[in-house]
Design a protein around this nucleic acid. Sequence first.
DNA 1: CTTTAATTAATTGTATACAATCTAATTATA
DNA 2: TATAATTAGATTGTATACAATTAATTAAAG
Lengths: 143, 143
Amino acid sequence: MNNELKLENQICFPLYAASKEIVRLYTPYLKDIDLTYTQYITMMVMWEVKEINVKELGNKLFLDSGTLTPLLKKLESKGYVERNRLSSDERNLIVKVTEKGLELQDMCKNIPGCVAGCVNITKEEAENLYKTLYKILGNIKED
Amino acid sequence: MNNELKLENQICFPLYAASKEIVRLYTPYLKDIDLTYTQYITMMVMWEVKEINVKELGNKLFLDSGTLTPLLKKLESKGYVERNRLSSDERNLIVKVTEKGLELQDMCKNIPGCVAGCVNITKEEAENLYKTLYKILGNIKED
DNA sequence: CTTTAATTAATTGTATACAATCTAATTATA
DNA sequence: TATAATTAGATTGTATACAATTAATTAAAG
């Protein structure tokens, strides 16, 4: 048996599974405020930058317009963002957080702590995990 | 600004993004043999166990029947697995790898190495990553 | 100044994911 | 043993993801 093709020897599989499981931990908290996980991380960017075009938003979130276009329309329909073309370059769609969108942030402030409480790893493990994951992301992005 | 709600301070986000990016690295290799990533990890289990019911397969893959049922039907239509009810308990659907499914393994043997070559982390980083991710998965599964 | 190239979103098509519900089969229990 | 509870998959509905293509706009080249 080829050991390299055993599921337990893959690094990608626990990454894939852990990612899904942690996203799932967010679900009940996010349901209270009618956000999905992807909508939540999108709002996280919006709280920070207030306004951004789809391209740059996609770079930050590692998502393309195929995912973002319908998602942003949904956030717009909920009143959390506005979508407008940039007059100086009509190709760009500028997403801008609304007052109502900003108010969401306050309702989310306890969520990271709640989820972190469900994931019992040490501070050191978390820091190393963080570093390695960003190293991976950096490697790939340069391609 | 609440620093806990900054995207860059989340542990879940790089996990989510890195998982997707690595899955994306597999895509071109898997396309050659007409498998998706999820189908690939499913076949990985099948190569190991030869035969398993949907419930246990789901436990191994962290996937439920909503995902697995259509996926297994697709693998069946490609001729890589067979699906049959267990006669002693008709609730159980037994998935069994076919000859053709086993032959796939040989065509996949270089894939892990190819993908690993695209992810430039040290052996030590990979080992720590592996441990931490399984620790997270273990924590969550106990709930 | 016009034709071509490049850029940005949107669209289309396929494949997950997962919660919630449903159905059939089996087990437990009164 | 009749019925309730449990279990295993399948189904339904919603929301991603992403490759590939298209459309509209802008920039660049000749």
